[in-house]
């Protein structure tokens, strides 16, 4: 009997156990990014910009030149790095609190300038690192530690749809929303990430991949239940799809 290995850890991924909670899909998104970096053979010219939040330690898991940005400012850091090093491949990796709350100005303006960077936006509808507070993407009625009775739109407004909002801008080249909740979505998420990095490498402009993710710990669910909850509740609010595509 002959054995052929058909799935293994990507080369640009550092061989350690992550700090993420069991079932947290940050790990899936990290692995996909590393796989794309390997497949495009860009490890030595890739620069990662990590956010503040659960994924602050992104650089402990992906072995590329890395910055750790201040909360919300990753697109500004990435913009400048890319302008000074045009041959590099620069991506930021940001959660919903980082990108859609404190960093709203930076993401909108980086997109509007058409910065040739790739932004990976992890939307799990909650603040993870700080312990489950309401996020700008928390669903109406969804409970969080700072909206214990569920998000009330009269008090806190409605979940922000980043892809739809950024797609109103002229400059961005590629905007898409995917998920990593189940394998069928994850396969498509990797295709989206590949296209996003290629958009940058080909100089076509700003690329943005929103990834719907789970946070079993702060949602108070078992990991498998969280993937089902994401499908049932997040996907109707945040529909998957391509909102802008390079010409």
């Amino acid at each position: 009997m002959k054995e052929t290995k058909i799935f293994e850890k990507p080369k640009s991924m550092i061989d350690v156990t992550t700090h993420y909670c069991p079932g947290c899909t940050h790990g899936v998104a990290h692995r996909l990014v590393a796989e794309v970096i390997d497949e495009l053979q860009i490890q030595e010219r890739t620069v990662a910009v990590a956010p503040v939040g659960c994924s602050v330690f992104l650089y402990n898991y992906i072995n590329v030149d890395s910055y750790e940005a201040a909360h919300g400012r990753a697109p500004a850091v990435a913009s400048a790095c890319k302008r000074l090093l045009p041959d590099s491949v620069v991506f930021s990796y940001q959660g919903d609190g980082d990108l859609a709350s404190i960093g709203m100005a930076e993401i909108v303006h980086a997109a509007n300038r058409g910065e040739k960077i790739t932004v990976i936006f992890i939307n799990n509808a909650i603040y993870g690192m700080t312990g489950g507070q309401m996020a700008p993407t928390t669903l109406v009625g969804q409970k969080a530690t700072t909206c214990p009775l569920g998000r009330d739109p009269k008090l806190a407004g409605y979940p922000i749809r980043m892809c739809e909002m950024l797609a109103t801008l002229q400059a961005p080249a590629y905007i898409t929303r995917v998920s990593v909740a189940k394998p069928k979505y994850t396969i498509k998420a990797k295709e989206a990430l590949t296209k996003a990095f290629q958009t940058q490498i080909e100089g076509k402009g700003f690329s943005f991949v929103e990834i719907l993710s789970t946070c079993p710990t702060n949602w108070g669910m078992r990991p498998v239940d969280a993937t089902n909850w994401l499908e049932e509740h997040m996907m109707p609010e945040f529909p998957l799809g391509v909102f802008k595509t390079p010409e």
């Binding site: 058909i6 799935f7 394998p183």
Partner: peptide, 26 residues
């Protein structure tokens, strides 16, 4: 069946997947 669904969904890169082939099959 070496479909890799387990490895694709694993958040911690725990799994490796091997395809098994009879030597004769070659």
């Amino acid at each position: 069946i070496a479909c890799r669904m387990c490895a694709i969904t694993c958040p911690d890169v725990v799994l490796e997947v091997f395809r098994l082939e009879d030597d004769k099959a070659c």
